[in-house]
């Protein structure tokens, strides 16, 4: 019991002092995950918009695949990206294995189906609502997609936050392709796994608290977004 109390005391000390090691790990985590989520949204939202607005053969199958990919276990994605970027893999020449680049790639693959699938649902509702108006006004399709994305901005931001939540808390994929190398690829989740197994509970706890704060912040942001969307009648 005494040990745990000490661990908490030390953890708070690390947080209060902004321990450089801790800050480095948190910064890398955020950098990797924010990049991955930005990439995932850049790919996933237009793809979701296309799936929502365009009718083409095989569309139903694509949606089923997308929804299935949403629940792919992160370790499987880690394995996949490992095989892609390892020296023998097709992207081996890029020398990405055990770099933040590989971690961004893995998290992008993890999050893209999620933001595409959830984004598609949001945008399909908007499309149903706007379709007749856009056809009546003869709005060119590029402008239609842009208008859908813009008008759904609040809902899509919520989707992006959900993607961020999934990526930042994920450990399986980034540990496989990143390797948890100190000062290079060590992020919050992999550091917690390592420090806990080594018995250094203080750092693990401090990082755990940061993750918790991140999760609370995301949920608060979602609530604020929803409230302001409601106030503006944008829901």
């Amino acid at each position: 019991m005494q040990d745990f109390a000490d661990a908490f005391r030390l953890a708070f000390a690390l947080l209060v002092q902004l321990d450089p090691n801790l800050v480095e790990i948190v910064a890398l985590s955020l950098q990797v995950t924010l990049s991955a989520v930005a990439l995932a949204c850049a790919i996933g939202f237009p793809a979701g918009a296309a799936l929502a607005a365009a009718k083409f053969p095989g569309r139903g199958a694509v949606i089923v695949i997308l929804n299935t990919m949403m629940s792919l276990p992160p370790v499987v994605i880690g394995l996949l990206v490992y095989m892609l970027v390892s020296n023998a893999g097709p992207l081996g020449f890029m020398q990405l294995l055990y770099t933040p680049g590989a971690m961004i790639m893995a998290q992008t693959i993890l999050v893209t189906p999620l933001v595409a699938a959830l984004g598609r649902q949001v945008l399909a509702d908007f499309h149903d609502e706007y379709d007749e108006t856009f056809r009546s006004m003869a709005v060119p399709w590029r402008k239609q997609v842009a208008a859908l994305l813009w008008d759904a901005r609040y809902s899509l931001l919520t989707v992006a936050l959900a993607g961020f939540g999934r990526a930042v808390a994920e450990v399986g994929a980034v540990i496989i392709v990143g390797g948890n190398i100190a000062h290079v690829t060590r992020v919050m989740t992999t550091a917690i796994a390592l420090e806990t197994s080594r018995g250094d509970l203080a750092l693990a706890l401090a990082l755990g608290i940061v993750l918790l704060v991140v999760a609370v912040t995301i949920n608060a942001a979602v609530m604020v977004l929803r409230a302001s969307a409601q106030r503006l009648a944008y829901v």
């Binding site: 706007y130 108006t133 944008y234």
Partner: peptide
């Protein structure tokens, strides 16, 4: 202009 016009969220 339809019976219930759809205004943009702007």
């Amino acid at each position: 202009v339809p019976q219930s016009p759809v205004l943009l969220r702007r």
